[in-house]
């Protein structure tokens, strides 16, 4: 998997209420949720984000509630992947489980500015800032999580396991 696109940059501790405010949690429709993606961090974001764009954020991205609506709305808004210095742990799990690619790489975050075009190679974690030419290397996912992604997500794993039991 390779991603290539322009970057929207956010600060530290972007919480799940900023990503998708609770006032919109009365629906589970990804398209509806996407209309309010990142709204309380940047009210114009839902209008300006385009398919293939990349979010780059400082530390502790996705802190706060367990709402899976957060990675769901980012994915449905067309964002191809998120790069951050660190992720809150439930957001991290949720992203893996629903298939939103995320990369932890503090150096890349410091070396990328808003509007830069960035390419990411998901297989080896290489991140290239096409605008400046700088290259970075993200932390690799643990093998068991790569397996989860390879079988098509957590629920596919569950199906296989239930079938094996039956």
């Amino acid at each position: 998997m390779k991603f290539n696109g322009p970057v929207w940059k956010f600060g530290k501790d972007i919480d799940t209420d900023a990503i998708i405010p609770a006032r919109y949690l009365n629906t589970t429709s990804p398209e509806e949720l996407a209309k309010h993606c990142m709204e309380d961090a940047d009210p114009t974001f839902p209008q300006k984000v385009k398919a293939g764009d990349i979010i780059v954020a400082d530390k502790n991205f996705g802190c706060g509630s367990s709402r899976e609506h957060a990675p769901i709305c980012i994915k449905a808004a067309g964002v191809s992947c998120v790069i951050a210095k660190s992720f809150a742990r439930i957001f991290f799990r949720n992203s893996i489980n629903i298939g939103l690619p995320i990369f932890e790489c503090p150096e890349a975050v410091d070396g990328i500015s808003e509007g830069d075009v960035v390419s990411v190679n998901a297989a080896d974690g290489t991140i290239v800032n096409e605008t400046t030419g700088a290259t970075f290397k993200a932390k690799a996912l643990p093998a068991s999580m790569q397996e989860l992604i390879a079988v098509g997500g957590l629920m596919k794993y569950v199906q296989a396991k239930l079938a094996a039991k039956a």
Binding site: S66, P71, R93, N94, N97, S144, L154, V158, K161, L162
Partner: peptide, 20 residues
């Protein structure tokens, strides 16, 4: 510990979860 809805769906089905 808190998890997301997909983890929860898996937990509802299997009665188990992965943890680090």
């Amino acid at each position: 510990t808190g998890v997301g809805s997909t983890d929860l769906a898996a937990g509802m089905a299997l009665g188990e979860a992965w943890f680090k």
